[in-house]
């Protein structure tokens, strides 16, 4: 749930990047970090193993401007993708306001995408949330690779309800900010519903 601070005039929101291992979640955050004005970002934290695989989470605080005289601050988190880190993934979803599902477009990762999306649904339910009830966005990442599943097929399998979707190549940054902005928009629009 977003945290609205009337004293500092800030809205703080939490966005979680979810998806199977090695789909490009950390790369998304690294690109955002590299391309953001230093005044608008805090330090990026990566709790990772020696081989740079996410162990617990990556964290990037961002300021995206002002709305109604309130600074809109977004805290971006990634989860560790490997199946055995499920306990950690669950913890990171606490208080989530919006989600990005990063799908790996490579043909051989389709099953992993489906499994991870189902895992997201299951873990949200443990927090009393539902994928259909929080703003979320689908990113089809790694579109630069040769062996990708056609978009129509990915959509059919992963995005039957038609949430906003973006093709991306996180290593070059294509689609990265589009994805983030759509998610942030969804989160802010949601403030109307809950009427803060």
């Amino acid at each position: 749930m977003s945290f609205i601070n009337y004293a500092a005039r800030e809205i703080n929101c939490k966005i979680v990047y979810y998806g199977p291992g090695l789909c490009g979640k950390t790369t998304n955050l690294q690109y955002v970090y590299a391309r953001t004005n230093p005044d608008l970002k805090g330090k990026m934290i990566s709790l990772a193993t020696e081989t740079e695989r996410t162990l617990f989470f990556d964290f990037l605080p961002l300021a995206l401007g002002e709305i109604r005289g309130f600074k809109a601050r977004f805290h971006l988190y990634t989860v560790p993708g490997q199946v055995f880190y499920d306990a950690s993934r669950k913890l990171i979803l606490k208080g989530v306001d919006g989600a990005v599902f990063v799908a790996d477009s490579q043909e051989e990762r389709m099953e992993a995408n489906i499994e991870s999306l189902e895992n997201l649904q299951t873990n949200l339910i443990e927090h009393g949330l539902e994928l259909g009830k929080i703003p979320w966005v689908m990113q089809y990442n790694k579109r630069d690779l040769p062996n990708v599943t056609p978009i129509e097929e990915m959509r059919r399998q992963l995005n039957p309800t038609g949430v906003p979707e973006f093709e991306a190549c996180a290593t070059t940054g294509e689609g990265v900010f589009e994805t983030l902005k759509a998610t942030a928009k969804g989160v802010l629009s949601d403030l109307r519903k809950v009427g803060a």
């Binding site: 709305i67 109604r68 928009k185 803060a196």
Partner: peptide, 21 residues
């Protein structure tokens, strides 16, 4: 206070959100 009764963000417009970006 419950949701929505006349608070700061209850009636933000799409334009205001777009302006942010």
């Amino acid at each position: 206070e419950g949701p929505g009764n006349g608070k700061t963000f209850a009636d933000i417009s799409d334009d205001e959100i777009d302006n942010l970006f």
